[in-house]
Design a protein around this nucleic acid. Sequence first.
DNA 1: CGGTTACTTGACTAGCTTCAAGCCTTGTGG
DNA 2: CCACAAGGCTTGAAGCTAGTCAAGTAACCG
Lengths: 195, 195
Amino acid sequence: MHLDFNILITYGGVAKKYQKGEYIFREDEAAYFYYQIIEGEVKLFSSNNDGKELIQGIFGKDRSFGEPPLLIDKPYPSTAQALTNCVIVKLRKERLLNIINDFPEFSIKIINTLATRIYNKANAVHIWVGQDPEEKLITFLNNYKGTNSKEIELIPYSRQQIADFTGLRVETVIRTLRRMNEENKVKIIDRKLYY
Amino acid sequence: MHLDFNILITYGGVAKKYQKGEYIFREDEAAYFYYQIIEGEVKLFSSNNDGKELIQGIFGKDRSFGEPPLLIDKPYPSTAQALTNCVIVKLRKERLLNIINDFPEFSIKIINTLATRIYNKANAVHIWVGQDPEEKLITFLNNYKGTNSKEIELIPYSRQQIADFTGLRVETVIRTLRRMNEENKVKIIDRKLYY
DNA sequence: CGGTTACTTGACTAGCTTCAAGCCTTGTGG
DNA sequence: CCACAAGGCTTGAAGCTAGTCAAGTAACCG
């Protein structure tokens, strides 16, 4: 989802700066705002008892995030953290509802956004169905490409991030990718991963 | 989501019987219909290369399913199969859109439904974050109770279904549940599971 | 009752995780 | 411009444990 900047400001949205590493919201907190990224990258993740993270998504410019809990008045099931310095517009829930009221065509937009996210999550499940690490990694890579669709491209994630996306350990990711490189299933050039 | 039966029929919905085991739709098929269960239970699942299943959900009376791909014109990411003999209303996509047009308040309903599903899926991710089987099972059981919220209750799933929900193997589920029973974390009476 | 399905148990094994250590790259401050 | 710190990446060795396979038992259903 992505609302026009001018509309956001008109309805009382406020652009706020976040330092790299700063938290935008945390797991279990109540949801009061609609967030849309103007600049920078945001990581959305849940963590388990041991502090291990599972990344739900990494978002960039013009992406909104955290709407589902906002829309249904539930606490956040995950934490949002700035990966880089960011500028993010915050808009109070009531104001978002005002926008939806004043521009009914947004309903359709929201429905499509939410349906798309469910669809993507349903696909992401394949990552965890896969028994062996290679299957998980391939599914992860395909899902990433699905949203971009070029032929072969740089995967802009660190080994640790890939591990946190797939639920594997860094070492397992490294070893598996190395083997897949030898088998020409991925390309690793100068430590960078291509697929 | 749940539409009134009379409205469904008025707009051209057709009630159809499905035998136990019959498929309602399959992974990768195009989506043309809105489905709502009148009677019986439906299992929604994806499978991997080895034929191992991962259950996305088991639904009963008055539940609709499969809307996200329908709304965004994508093929189904999972398969729907009748767990019992079922009666299900099928409604062509255009007719569903007609209903939405004629009853604008449904937009809100749909948005809430979709937001709720995303929220639940985000929670379900915790199932796979968990390293050890016990953590996965506890998360699964909590998620199940979350939608019902009674104190202690029968879990109406077979060991195999729990395995397919959590991505574990039947044997692992059995052994872990037995240990959890000994440690009073769950109750097993006469092979039935309570939590 | 006979057949089918679900559940249970034991033994074994593969391979992921863990732990520990070292290397490479990048950015920063003197 | 160089030295150093910090973070990411890589490797090896060892242990644990969930998966696999095989067999047997209990419940359910017609």
